[in-house]
Design a binder for these strands. Structure first.
Lengths: 197, 197
DNA sequence: CTGACATTACCTAACGTTCGTTTAGTAAAA
DNA sequence: TTTTACTAAACGAACGTTAGGTAATGTCAG
């Protein structure tokens, strides 16, 4: 079987779609990028839409195992949260294609694809995260708190190219460990980091 | 002058670009949406790129005055922060086109347009926000804390269509006042809302 | 106030290019 | 001999953009 060619096309498609978005990627451009003819791409995928959906699946599946070591039973809740935030910041910083494709899906996906995104990418980690937050003492707004953790990390990384042009920016603000540390500090103590603790 | 037609085209363009993105919007589709011919659109704008940039300007300029009442001198720092978070959540929830266009710019804009976005939309509010955070006692990571406030509100709203499919979701999670209240609680006290206070 | 003229705000119709997709064929592997 | 993995060439549709024309709306000397 030609699983090599197909995977190579998918990998290239993920990069192109994440950089340019669905509409801006042409089948000719993709075929050119993988060094094949257009018809060769159509040999592996029935049409552009199906290719895109499979590319999204492909990109998301790769991240499924990234969080496996985070939720180990013998850790304290605080440690689990810390590991999760570090891991999330690491993944979103390292795999730029994945992050951008996810952002684009948040903008463009219909409800059915949104459900896929929830189930395939978020649901498992989200449930773990909610359990940890419950252990930490929060009892009422567990869903919202878990969402806040993810949202905070995601958007801080997503806003990096913008925040570079805002007053007070320093290079270290874009280092994974710095981001994770600051986010954790905020989550544990709030903004007034001194008056609390 | 035909400022009416031009503004109407811009307004329609903002909606279309925010919903579909630059590449997916055609000049014919836009012309059809405003009930004009293609050439009529080209009478007002030299080309698609220039029309898009002007539409982005147009959408951003409308939001400039939304925060005017937030930073009044006689308020305490806590009150100013509270008002800002409420106002930001309100704007991002109400003006969907603005929010989506901003998200798309974060994905697609080059460094020059990112600078424009920083200067035209964020810089003024960001400076005010940093000043407030400094007043509240945070002294070291003012830039990062201010960024966190904005990122938290933005991404929670942006992830709404996804979070609907995650466990624990309730309808009230999408109400502006609820979002602002929860975000403020998190910012002031961290996740462990009881152990701190 | 009026007639001549210019400008504005649009129109229809077309330009060449690029798009997604298909058809027909080939060379190698099973 | 059938199936697999491809290629070259073409299909009609849609794309951004332009050319050329037509009413309506100023503008202003006489």
């Amino acid at each position: 079987m030609s699983v090599d060619s197909k995977e190579y096309i998918l990998q290239t498609a993920v990069t192109l779609f994440s950089k340019q978005g669905f509409a801006a990627v042409s089948m000719r451009g993709l075929a050119n990028s993988v060094g094949m003819s257009v018809a060769a791409v159509y040999h592996h995928f029935p049409n552009k839409q199906a290719l895109y959906l499979e590319a999204v699946h492909f990109a998301f599946a790769k991240q499924a195992s990234a969080f496996d070591e985070v939720w180990q039973a013998q850790l304290t809740a605080d440690e689990k949260l810390s590991r999760f935030v570090h891991c999330l910041a690491q993944v979103l910083t390292t795999d730029v294609d994945f992050r951008r494709l996810m952002q684009r899906e948040l903008l463009d996906a219909d409800d059915e694809r949104m459900q896929l995104l929830a189930k395939e990418v978020f649901q498992e980690q989200f449930s773990h995260l909610m359990a940890v937050i419950e252990q930490m003492g929060e009892s009422r707004q567990i869903h919202f708190s878990a969402l806040s953790v993810i949202a905070l990390v995601c958007d801080i990384i997503q806003m990096q190219p913008l925040s570079r042009h805002l007053p007070g920016w320093r290079a270290e603000h874009e280092e994974v460990d710095f981001i994770a540390g600051q986010v954790l500090n905020l989550l544990m103590n709030g903004i007034k980091s001194k008056g609390c603790q």
